[in-house]
């Protein structure tokens, strides 16, 4: 596997006064270049701590994180790592630095010391990629949550990273904003080949991912394609995760003796599964 990020036996400990608390425990993980990975976990499962280690914002207490072969512990290549692996956070308001959309998107490339014409090109491309080009001269303050979050994504995209790590980017958005962000991420992944690592606790956002990793108590407890992960409703519920209503419905039907396959996720797939089951004994 061609890995963009390798996480090797990583442990991360927080110290709070006397007590030491391990948020991530001896975790290993490879992220394949060009893949779309979703990391699921409830609040406090260690998923955010892991996310911040992927671009060197947090340094592991023990173990190593390699980005394209570069160890994030190496201080001389810190900027290089952050340029390759961009990071988007939960609250879009706290990531936007400038009062004009395009000036904000320019912030990253400006820090890289690029030529003005190159910055312009990247800003325009990034804004087009998230479908916010028409808003380039607007004030972020007036935009909706989903639009602001897309500006934050554009701000990272303008650094032309290879990988985007997003830490619960939809947690503060309404359903419309959430849908906007998820479809934007899939477009960046399929059209531009950007590796996506999406951290969330909304399971339905993992529907079209290549791979789903479930975290609990600082460890990986499941790692598979979405259909296999979602069919295990019991485990997901036991680690405090949200289960889409389709999965819940199929699971209840199965418990009531219906011969349904609980792998189905979308409304259409679930309906097809139920129709099959209803007709099976006719």
């Amino acid at each position: 596997m061609d890995s963009i990020i390798s996480v090797r036996n990583v442990t991360y400990e927080y110290r709070e006064e006397e007590t030491v608390y391990a948020a991530v425990k001896d975790l290993s993980l490879e992220i394949e270049r060009g893949s779309f990975t979703v990391i699921l976990g409830h609040n406090g499962s260690g998923k955010s701590t892991l996310a911040k280690m992927l671009n060197g914002l947090n340094k592991p207490t023990s173990g190593d994180v390699l980005v394209d072969g570069i160890n994030t512990k190496d201080e001389s290549t810190e900027i290089e790592v952050k340029r390759k692996v961009g990071m988007v956070f939960q609250n879009p308001d706290n990531q936007i630095i400038a009062s004009i959309v395009e000036e904000d998107v320019a912030f990253g490339p400006e820090n890289l010391g690029l030529e003005p014409s190159e910055i312009r090109r990247r800003v325009d491309n990034a804004l087009k990629a998230v479908d916010m080009y028409d808003f380039r001269e607007s004030t972020p303050h007036r935009l909706s949550g989903g639009q602001k979050q897309r500006i934050a994504i554009a701000g990272i995209m303008a650094m032309e990273p290879e990988c985007l790590v997003l830490d619960e980017p939809t947690a503060m958005l309404d359903p419309k904003g959430r849908a906007e962000i998820i479809s934007t991420l899939h477009r960046l992944n399929s059209d531009k080949g950007i590796t996506i690592v999406l951290i969330t606790h909304y399971m339905e956002e993992a529907e079209n991912a290549d791979r789903v990793i479930v975290m609990n108590d600082g460890k990986i407890i499941a790692d598979n394609v979405p259909k296999v992960i979602f069919s295990d409703v019991k485990t997901l519920k036991s680690v405090g995760l949200d289960v889409p209503q389709t999965a819940e419905l199929l699971y209840s039907l199965k418990e009531n003796g219906f011969p349904v396959d609980t792998h189905a996720l979308s409304v259409k797939e679930a309906a097809a599964e139920i129709i099959k089951a209803m007709r099976s004994e006719e």
Binding site: Q245, T246, L249, V267, K268, A270, A271, I275
Partner: peptide, 14 residues
Amino acid sequence: IVTRVFYELKAAGI
């Protein structure tokens, strides 16, 4: 969502 699934079932003649 469950209602949307049932729309599909109805369309399929159940």
